[in-house]
Structure formats: structure tokens, C-alpha cells
């Protein structure tokens, strides 16, 4: 009797899950750029989407410092994430930011040391090194996990399973059906904006042509 009940329950749950799977979708696309060598490293993101109420304590984002350079140059993180700042260089660095989204100053610290910062407010955080004027980078603090960074061919997928997995962000469902505003951000490209409709029948694909210029703010 209990075995039969269990089988029926599992079948019912499976049935329930089918429409949910079908009613969620991802966004894929391709970027082409004019005035830049590569369409890589363009941040493509959904401006308004459900957030992620997940435990971010095991999520690891890293902004490295090596050969007088921040690596990566642009690091998108989910709001509430902690970023590690190892100094893998041969000289001391002093990471700081005076951006309104996050003000901090890690002070001067020696090679081989790591410091961490919690990013708890969405927006663009411009990083600087107090003693090396050439060093700058951006931490993009995202409101929701629906973003992607374009690859060398300009392709992207939102949500980006590879990026999320690499940083230990789990449990990000596809987007529920509806209309979404998609924007782009790249340091040297004019921000493009597009409204796309996620139908719930799998992937929604589109193409973006970007031109050289200044990007806009992350969220208006």
C-alpha cells in the first residue's frame, strides 16, 4: 500500500515539475562589436528579475593582483558576495574604492597576503591601487543572478551555467516567462538596451550590435 502511494506521489511530483520546466527559459545571444578587436568580456544582464535568496557563504569571487594588474579587469558578482583580493605580485598593493556602491580601503599589503570585502549594495565599484596609478578594475555588483559575460566569439547565455558553477552559485532557475530589459556593459562600448520576451519554451535568442563609446550606469 505504502509502496503504491509512494509511486503515485513521485509520478504526481514529476507531472508537476514538467509544466514548471516548460514555463522557464534562458536567453542566449551573440554580440558583434565595432571598434574593438574582440566581442569578448561584455557583461549582458537582465535589469529586473527575481533575486536569489541563497546562502552565499561558500561563493568565491577573486580579484587578483599580479604584475601591476587587477585580474580580471571586470568582475560581476551577486549582491551579498564576498570578494577575495590576493596579492600575487612582487610589490605591495593598496586596493581601495571610493565608489558610492562600496567605499573601502584595504591599506598597503605585502605579496602573499589576501584580504576580503563584502559587496552589499548593487552598482559599479571602481577599484584603484593607491600607489600604482595604472591599476584599475571594476566590480559589478548585480541585483540578480541573470547575467553573462560574452566569450571570444561574442556568445552568451543567461543565466550562465558555467560562470555560476565556477564561482559556486547554485540553484539559479531559468527565467520565468515574461518581458525583460537586457542591457550591456563594457568599459569601451556604448551600452545597448533591448527588450526580450522569454516564452517559457526554452531559449530566447537575439543579436546585439555594439559600438565604441562610454557605457551607462548599471541600474538607473
Amino acid at each position: 500500500m505504502s509502496h503504491q502511494f509512494l509511486t503515485i506521489s513521485i509520478a504526481f511530483l514529476l507531472l508537476l515539475s514538467v509544466p514548471f520546466q516548460a514555463l522557464a527559459g534562458s536567453i542566449t545571444g551573440k554580440i558583434s562589436v565595432k571598434g574593438l578587436r574582440s566581442p569578448a568580456n561584455v557583461l549582458v544582464y537582465v535589469t529586473k528579475a527575481p533575486g536569489l535568496s541563497a546562502d552565499l557563504s561558500n561563493v568565491k569571487f577573486t580579484m587578483d593582483q599580479k604584475n601591476l594588474t587587477f585580474v580580471p579587469h571586470i568582475l560581476p558578482v551577486l549582491v551579498g558576495s564576498t570578494v577575495h583580493f590576493p596579492n600575487d605580485d612582487q610589490v605591495a598593493h593598496n586596493v581601495f574604492s571610493l565608489s558610492r556602491a562600496k567605499k573601502f580601503n584595504l591599506g598597503s599589503y605585502k605579496p602573499g597576503t589576501t584580504k576580503t570585502v563584502l559587496f552589499d549594495k548593487p552598482g559599479i565599484v571602481e577599484l584603484r591601487c593607491d600607489v600604482h596609478a595604472e591599476m584599475s578594475a571594476y566590480i559589478m555588483v548585480m541585483k540578480n543572478p541573470y547575467w553573462a559575460v560574452s566569450d571570444a566569439k561574442g556568445s552568451f547565455k543567461i543565466p550562465d551555467p558555467v560562470y555560476l558553477d565556477q564561482h559556486g552559485i547554485k540553484g539559479v532557475p531559468d527565467l520565468p516567462p515574461g518581458k525583460y530589459v537586457i542591457k550591456t556593459w563594457h568599459e569601451k562600448l556604448k551600452t545597448a538596451k533591448k527588450v526580450v520576451e522569454v516564452s517559457g519554451k526554452g531559449e530566447t535568442a537575439f543579436r546585439l550590435d555594439l559600438k565604441r563609446g562610454n557605457p551607462s550606469v548599471l541600474y538607473k
Binding site: L68, T69, V91, N105, G107, S108, D130, H132, A133, E134
Partner: peptide, 23 residues
């Protein structure tokens, strides 16, 4: 205890530049 306490002219105007690498 400010992180900038003790910074001096030499730190910024006599610091390393990328074009000088490798060290």
C-alpha cells in the same frame, strides 16, 4: 589608523609602472 596614514610622495611618483616589467 587610517589606511592612508604614512603615504608619501615617493610612493606614487616613484612607483612601478607596467612597462618596466618584468621586475
Amino acid at each position: 589608523n587610517d589606511a592612508n596614514k604614512g603615504k608619501k610622495c615617493q610612493d606614487c611618483h616613484m612607483g612601478w609602472r607596467k612597462e618596466m616589467l618584468p621586475y
